[in-house]
Design a protein around this nucleic acid. Structure first.
Lengths: 199, 199
DNA sequence: ATGACATGCAACAGGCTTGTATCACTTAAT
DNA sequence: ATTAAGTGATACAAGCCTGTTGCATGTCAT
């Protein structure tokens, strides 16, 4: 049999590298051409199509693995903001900047063209919870209106991040500093674009 | 030759209907399965694949036609808000509600999976200008911070609309009233989710 | 009613992808 | 050094989708 997706036992250092190369190449290629063939991915990975199929039975299996890994990276990015312990607004800012970095590096796997696997979906759910928890802390502290619907807030937050991603494609690198962008996102989220009477 | 995309002269009432049916079916089918085949589209339109090819040489030509028509509907939706003459905030609200309706009906053609044709791209550019003009009027009037970057404002506005679209998929129809949603969008755009000291 | 236009049906060629199978050869592991 | 694992090259079967053609039949326009 050629397809052995669930590695019963540890892969050889050799194969491990191949898997990595394939996943990285898949992200690169699919980000630019979502409908790219296995052949194109294999070529970009410096590997034969046969090898790709040896490591990932289906195209689906490959995409799933990609989505799962990216989701893990995303969770890590948020955790690095210390959402539980740091002052909530600081955590939000840090998490946002980290997420922007991760999203830029995994724009396909985290993009809308991917039907999340079970595994990845669970991670994304967990992330959403963490996010709402953090927003709740900000609300307790008065940073968010007491009567705000946190689910709506979260979605607006996600939308702002997504919007910023679009623009960093063709922007001068100076404008692409994650910290600057994160500041803009958080500010817009909290205060909108209206006049600044109080603040 | 079977492919006659650019109808030199008016189509027969017969063919006209086919074209409409095909476009409508394409929107319906592709919205659910972006990779659907011509066959599936034809079937949904109550027509043979041959006929589809008779009216649209390529799959691309079909998608382009779809994108062009949807773009026109979108422009119309905004124009119906009277962006030039009505009080700017009223126009923004009305245009937003109209756009939500149109976007719901053309979620594929106006979605991210479509590479806009020349024609459609021009229309979208024109719409963006109209949008910025309207935002400028709101700013003059004090509804938007004097130092706000209108291009950023426009993008946030688009993002909020896009976010609302996501959620109307699986929402109770009560929560899907365009006017309610539009109010939420405009409010969030202007004031964010932070505490409401002034306002 | 008659001619032009439009559609359905059937069929075909070509192309591109996927998944699988050998087999000889290279590479890591102990 | 020997063995097991991994890879490249090549090949094949199968499936699907596209684009086109021919013809018989149905429908609109006048």
């Amino acid at each position: 049999m050629t397809h052995t997706p669930p590695p019963g036992r540890p892969l050889r250092a050799d194969a491990e590298r191949s898997v990595r190369a394939i996943l990285a190449a898949a992200e690169r290629v699919l980000a630019e051409t979502p409908g790219a063939s296995m052949e194109q991915i294999a070529e970009a990975a410096g590997v034969t199509r046969t090898t790709v199929h040896r490591r990932f039975a289906n195209r689906q299996a490959l995409v799933d693995a990609l989505a799962t890994e990216a989701a893990a990276k995303l969770a890590e990015a948020i955790e690095d903001g210390r959402p539980e312990t740091a002052p909530p607004l600081v955590a939000l800012h840090r998490a946002t900047a980290n997420v922007l970095r991760v999203k830029a590096a995994w724009s396909f796997a985290l993009g809308p063209a991917v039907a999340q696997s079970e595994q990845a979906a669970r991670t994304h759910d967990a992330i959403a919870h963490r996010c709402v928890d953090l927003l709740a802390r900000i609300r307790e502290q008065g940073g968010i209106a007491a009567d705000a619907d946190l689910e709506w807030v979260r979605r607006v937050y996600y939308a702002l991040i997504g919007e910023v991603m679009h623009s960093t494609d063709d922007a001068p690198p100076a404008d692409a500093d994650p910290d600057v962008l994160a500041a803009r996102i958080v500010d817009t989220l909290l205060y909108g674009v209206g006049p600044r009477g109080t603040r």
